[in-house]
Nucleic acid binder design. Structure first.
Length: 315
DNA sequence: AAGGTACTCAACCGCCCTATA
DNA sequence: TTATAGGGCGGTTGAGTACCT
């Protein structure tokens, strides 16, 4: 017996999500948390497949997502992780906490593949077959480089997801009607989806072709700074009012655990768990342990100074 | 300016894995 | 043990946009 469809295919809306749908989804998830995707369409009234809801959330609306403009560092990391892990985009994405697997996959397919082809450094096919020794050496190099990239990415000197998200820790919400405990719980999990949706709405209103759809949107078009607590928009509809207000309130709070640790790779999570058991430290301590591990390894192998060109020659 | 082509990326499809009854 | 549901993942598609001729 084949698997039944996750939802009734008839009458299910497909194609791009509208800001209205996004708001409904984000509001629901902020209230109830993600999961139980199957029930979301019925509970929210969204005429969408449950999978579509999940995808929209994980790839677009989820907090802490960075979009576009991959840095050189990220690029290198993706290339080397791809060499190590293959097309396991979810695993690769776990090393880049702010990026989604879909984003990385797209970036690989549209940019990096071509780039590598140009450089004739395809990770899959080498024009000259390697001996076992050469292969092992190359694999080791890849591991070193991936670790180096991870080391760079987690370096406390550079801005990261953890630092971004920890900046506005537990600000009080003056006049909030929502109980502080529940708000804290929610915002611990969803620190910045409001920021994402604000960006989305901003982009939407910029597009003249989409002006016709400006209902709720018209009132939510604002700069990022406005959204992050600077001030309230002046002409808002009643429909958007409550949603927007709740988003503002939630936005001003933050997560203690942050998206960083949540989206860490299983390997890193394992390290954290291990260190928690052994030392019972807080997040900062655990991060330090992780960094120590990295830098210890780096120290042993002079990892952070690993000469890329030198090794490239040996292949 | 118009038409054709290439590129990008959000979203969908279908398979797989896991949890549960 | 098996059937089923829910969710995750990678591959692919196609609409919108940018670029080129």
């Amino acid at each position: 017996m084949g698997r039944p469809p996750c939802c009734d295919q008839n009458g299910v809306k497909k194609g791009p999500w509208t800001p209205e749908e996004d708001i409904i989804l984000v509001t629901y998830i902020q209230e109830h948390g993600p999961g139980n995707w199957r029930s979301i369409p019925t509970k929210t009234g969204l005429v969408r497949c449950s999978k579509s809801c999940r995808l929209r959330w994980t790839n677009y609306l989820r907090p802490g997502i960075k979009r576009g403009n991959f840095t050189d560092q990220e690029e290198k990391m993706i290339i080397h992780l791809q060499a190590l892990l293959g097309n396991r985009w979810a695993a690769i994405a776990s090393y880049l906490p702010q990026r989604t697997d879909n984003d990385i996959k797209n970036y690989w397919n549209t940019h990096l593949k071509k780039k590598l082809k140009k450089l004739e450094l395809s990770p899959y096919e080498d024009p000259i077959p390697m001996s076992r020794g050469q292969w092992e050496k190359r694999l080791q190099t890849d591991i070193h480089l991936a670790r180096q990239a991870l080391c760079d990415a987690l370096s406390p000197e550079k801005p990261s997801a953890s630092s971004d998200l920890s900046e506005a820790k537990h600000k009080p919400v003056p006049g909030s009607s929502v109980s502080s405990k529940s708000v804290q719980t929610l915002t611990t999990i969803y620190p910045s989806s409001t920021e994402n949706i604000a960006k989305l709405l901003k982009g939407w209103t910029k597009d003249p072709a989409k002006q016709a759809h400006r209902t709720v949107v018209a009132d939510l078009s604002m700069t990022d700074s406005t959204f992050s607590g600077g001030g309230m928009p002046s002409n808002r509809t009643e429909v958007s009012d409550n949603v927007f207000e709740s988003l503002i309130k939630l936005e001003s709070l933050d997560s203690s655990t942050s998206g960083f640790s949540r989206s860490m790779s299983p390997e890193i999570s394992h390290l954290q768990d291990e260190s928690r058991l052994r030392f019972g430290g807080d997040d900062q301590e655990q991060l330090s342990l992780l960094l120590n591990w990295l830098f210890d390894e780096a120290g042993k192998e002079q990892l952070c100074d690993f000469p890329m060109a030198d090794n490239a020659d040996s292949f």
